[in-house]
């Protein structure tokens, strides 16, 4: 084997190593989901629905998709209120992508959790409900949320 052939082999091996390294680098990119400031509005006793708010942050390097939300407080879905010409309109968001280094802010008159079939046992001022956020990549994230009046 002459020197030129040796060089070719070394070059090919280096290229393969570099490609493998790049591949691993992409595979290492993961989402990192964090939640903060979550709370649920204490509804009037006769109410059949209420809302929850908070922030879902993705501090990771890859996007993730929120697929499903469940809670012991009742049935819960992600909704979005939109104000158009002074009129509020609500839409159901079946799932939502949270990009890397971005956040989903749930607040009044915007994205929010809509609770129905409320559990009377859970909805007491100062009590806590459990929320399960199911993500495509991150799996199920469990958080405990304070229930309090909205004033």
């Amino acid at each position: 084997m002459n020197n030129l052939s040796m060089l070719k082999i070394v070059f090919i091996m280096l290229s393969v190593l570099m490609l493998a390294s790049a591949g691993n680098s992409n595979a290492d990119k993961q989402p990192n989901i964090e939640t903060e400031s979550f709370w649920i509005v204490l509804p009037p006793e006769v109410a059949r629905h209420t809302a929850g708010y908070g922030i879902i942050k993705n501090t990771g390097e890859a996007s993730d998709t929120l697929l499903k939300i469940t809670s012991n407080a009742g049935a819960v879905m992600l909704h979005k209120t939109e104000i158009q010409s002074g009129k509020a309109r609500m839409t159901h968001i079946p799932n939502i992508v949270i990009e890397a280094h971005s956040e989903l802010v749930l607040k009044p008159m915007s994205f929010h959790l809509m609770f129905s079939d409320l559990s009377p046992v859970i909805f007491i001022d100062g009590s806590k409900a459990t929320l399960f956020l199911e993500f495509e990549q991150s799996g199920i994230i469990k958080i405990n949320i304070l229930i309090r009046p909205n004033w």
Partner: peptide, 20 residues
């Protein structure tokens, strides 16, 4: 209306603060 989950309770909470 009372079956409203987001806007109406939020509005009434705002009006409570206003009145207070």
């Amino acid at each position: 209306y009372t079956n409203c989950a987001d806007i109406c309770p939020f509005t009434l909470g705002y009006l409570k603060r206003l009145y207070g």
